[in-house]
Design a protein around this nucleic acid. Structure first.
Length: 271
DNA sequence: ACTGGCTCCTGAGGGC
DNA sequence: TGCCCTCAGGAGCCAG
């Protein structure tokens, strides 16, 4: 489900409800996520105040008094704010209850997501250690992409989806950004010019910013922390549009698999 | 060092 | 209505 805009939408949605609040009780109904949830989590979290809600890549980072709660939503995860207790339905694996009565509820049918407790002030968890720059930050530049891509034969789409290159570019927005930049997704990363990487960097930034402004993309089931869908799906130009006319030239949008992921593109506009 | 392929898991949708 | 197959917004891990 979530790509970076959906994670950011979630962050913006939960922060006003939890920052400054003290955790009163935590219940874990299902420990078997991508990695097992620490059985001591309820004891560890109780009594701690939330200082901030940050994001690194697609990881949500809840900064608490004694450390960081690191949450990944995987492919099908979501976080909801509940204003009062409500019995848990299937796949609603974890609740974080606060002293003001609200509950942060984690749901994840496929259980590809994760919840880690990182004790200490500035934890550098192994999962965060080798991540590339944030796509909306200053370190994400065409020059850096160009340099990192020389000699690489991997398809440029797989290249920009590699979290060591740049984080937060998932399957939907990779197709969308490459379309906007006019670059064929199959083109080897090492055979994209600096000028075209400039186009791509701008396109990635634009598409992510627009998607965040629209509240993310709801394809099947994405709902934000208040239970509302995102509206960016109305702005998708290629993703999920196989056979439909290109919005620029009218040629049918094509679909193929790159790196085991569905990829959409215009064979006429993208070279 | 790269690259491609596999894997975790549940649910939805299509074909028959 | 039911069964079987394919596919799904992530990403860590492994063999070659």
């Amino acid at each position: 489900m979530p790509e970076l805009p959906e994670v950011e939408t979630t962050r913006l949605g939960i922060a006003p409800h939890v920052v400054g609040r003290v955790i009163s009780n935590v219940s874990v109904r299902e420990h078997r996520l991508r990695w097992p949830v620490d059985p001591d989590l309820p004891v560890v979290l109780a009594g701690q105040r939330v200082q901030a809600v940050e994001r690194r890549a697609k990881y949500l980072l809840l900064r608490l008094d004694q450390g960081t709660l690191m949450i990944h939503l995987g492919m099908s995860g979501s976080l909801r704010m509940l204003s009062a207790p409500r019995s848990a339905a299937a796949h609603e694996h974890l609740d974080i209850g606060f002293e003001h009565g609200w509950i942060l509820r984690y749901t994840d049918p496929r259980r590809f997501g994760s919840v880690h407790w990182l004790p200490g002030p500035q934890p550098l968890h192994p999962l965060l250690a080798d991540l590339g720059p944030e796509p909306l930050g200053d370190a994400f530049t065409a020059e850096a992409l160009y340099r990192a891509s020389r000699g690489r034969r991997v398809a440029v789409k797989a290249f920009v989806m590699n979290a060591r290159v740049v984080v937060g570019v998932g399957n939907i927005y990779a197709s969308e950004a490459l379309f906007r930049a006019g670059i064929a997704p199959t083109r080897p990363a090492g055979r994209v010019s600096l000028q075209r990487y400039r186009q791509l960097v701008m396109a990635i930034r634009d598409v992510l910013i627009e998607a965040i402004a629209a509240g993310g993309t709801t394809l099947r089931d994405f709902l934000d922390s208040g239970g509302r869908p995102g509206y960016f799906s109305q702005n998708l130009r290629v993703y999920g549009r196989a056979g439909a006319p290109c919005t620029v030239c009218g040629a049918p949008i094509r679909q193929r698999r790159i790196g085991q992921r569905a990829t959409y593109y215009c064979g006429h506009c993208q070279r």
